[in-house]
Simulated scan of single mutants.
Amino acid sequence: MTSNIVARRYARALFTLGKRTSLQELENNAAALESIRTAVAASPDLAQVFRSPIFSVGDKTAIIKALAKKLKFGGTILNFCLLLAEKKRLSSIEGIAEEYNGLLDAEKGVMRGQLLTAVTLDEEHKKALVAKLEKQAKRTLLLNFGVSPEILGGVVLKVGDQVMDASLRAQLSILKDTIKRGE
């Protein structure tokens, strides 16, 4: 079983459990998972402990309890992490957090993505562009803006698995292919 499948299954289980309570519980769980993911990313030693079969379940449980105290989470997330330790799945915590955030975004009707432009946009243009895209998608969009001079002009929008390439570079490439084929 690949780690993506494991992460997806555990994230769905935790999400289903939180959904029985409230949206606030779902958001609290997401915040706790994100704080754990940040701690693991910031500490290679902690990541190594979570991955290593050398450390016993008892050792990992003690570390999780100390982490819970430090990061101030408990209840469902603490029990969830203890279950992950018991099932030897702590190494999947980062993937679980990512999958969980995706489920929460879908529940709230939010889509996350990245918008690349050839030049830096000012805040007014960013807001106008997001508003127009939200109107077309009929969903709330949270976009990270980036600059990529290689696209020459236009935009490249990446949302989930989908990429909309409305860049000048892509248009020139299409034109070049059309000319080569003699159409």
Rank of each mutant, 00 (worst) to 15 (best):
N4W: 15
N4S: 12
N4D: 14
A7W: 02
R12I: 15
L14R: 04
K19P: 00
R20Q: 15
R20C: 15
R20N: 15
T21W: 05
T21N: 11
S22N: 00
N29Y: 04
A31N: 14
E34D: 09
S35M: 13
A39P: 06
S43Y: 07
S43T: 11
L46C: 03
A47S: 09
A47E: 08
Q48H: 15
S52G: 01
I54F: 11
S56V: 09
V57E: 06
G58N: 11
G58C: 07
T61M: 06
I63E: 00
I64C: 05
K65W: 06
A66W: 12
A68W: 08
K70Q: 10
L71E: 15
K72N: 13
I77Y: 00
L83V: 07
K88L: 07
S92F: 12
I93R: 03
I93V: 04
E94F: 08
G95H: 07
G95W: 04
Y100I: 01
Y100F: 09
L103I: 06
L104S: 01
E107A: 05
V110S: 01
M111W: 03
M111Y: 01
R112E: 07
R112T: 14
R112P: 08
G113H: 08
Q114P: 10
Q114H: 14
Q114M: 12
L116P: 07
T120E: 14
D122R: 03
K126H: 06
K127F: 02
K127D: 06
K127V: 04
K127H: 01
A128T: 10
A131M: 08
K138C: 09
R139M: 12
R139K: 15
T140A: 03
L142R: 05
L143E: 02
L143D: 02
N144M: 11
V147T: 06
E150S: 10
G153F: 00
G153R: 02
G153W: 03
V155G: 13
V156T: 00
L157E: 04
L157A: 02
V159T: 09
G160D: 15
A166P: 09
S167Q: 00
R169L: 15
Q171T: 11
Q171C: 13
L175P: 05
I179F: 05
G182P: 05
